[in-house]
């Protein structure tokens, strides 16, 4: 029982850290790409949209090669650590959050941008305006990305190694228990995983509802 508790805590730590960092990277990035017009903009957007379909195992393999002792960042000693797992999950989550956020930002009514500009808003204020206007879309993006990484097993298996007491999380333990014929434990771990996913979804939804009530036009 203590084993599954310890694994669950690590799962929450890895998934939540990964989703937090990727949100803080991908959302501002999407705002900036949305705000500035540049020549390769289309290409950047297409690239991120393509990367949303990248197989997690491939991400895992690339991160493994990066952190392997013979790899370019081998000296950091990050292979088989939860940091490496978080990094792999960030790489999976960023394209998803970016693409969904961008599609919401780009759908904002042009009039809003024009009004903000005429009222003398700075670039940053305009971006914040776009962001507030599409906060529901941002929440949707985060939840979708969270759903993707919470059940992800291929990448974390390769970079984490599923080491007991160090890098074993719920998804990798499900694989292990299944292989050991301990189906009961596997289902148990699966139930805990779904409970965590459910709780996070509830938390984020409640948070976004309260944000929605604070919008400028409802005040």
């Amino acid at each position: 029982m203590s084993e599954i508790f310890e694994i669950s805590i690590r799962s929450i730590y890895v998934n939540c850290t990964a989703i937090l960092i990727s949100t803080f990277v991908a959302v501002p990035l999407a705002l900036i790409v949305d705000f500035f017009g540049f020549r390769s903009k289309r290409f950047v957007i297409l690239l991120f949209q393509t990367l949303t379909g990248i197989p997690p195992v491939l991400v895992g393999l690339l991160v493994y090669l990066l952190f392997s002792r013979k790899g370019p960042l081998g000296n950091l000693g990050l292979l088989f650590t939860s940091t490496a797992m978080i990094l792999a999950q960030i790489l999976i989550a960023i394209p998803i959050i970016f693409s969904i956020c961008y599609s919401h930002f780009s759908k904002i009514d042009e009039k809003l941008r024009v009004i903000m500009k005429t009222l003398g808003a700075t670039g940053f204020q305009q971006m914040m305006g776009v962001f507030r206007e599409s906060s529901v879309g941002v929440v949707n993006a985060i939840l979708t990305a969270f759903g993707r990484i919470v059940g992800e097993v291929g990448a974390v298996m390769i970079v984490g190694g599923n080491i007991a007491g160090r890098t074993r999380i719920l998804t990798t333990s499900i694989v292990l228990y299944t292989n050991m014929g301990r189906f009961d434990d596997a289902i148990m771990a699966g139930a805990v995983l779904l409970m965590i996913a459910f709780s996070v979804n509830v938390l984020i939804t409640v948070f976004s509802d309260s944000m929605e009530k604070k919008k400028w036009y409802t005040r």
Partner: peptide
């Protein structure tokens, strides 16, 4: 001790890469 369970092919590859 950290134990990583993989196939024999992968384990030998880990050895070659000093992982």
């Amino acid at each position: 001790l950290s134990i990583v369970a993989v196939g024999t092919g992968m384990a030998l590859e880990y050895g070659k890469r000093a992982d």
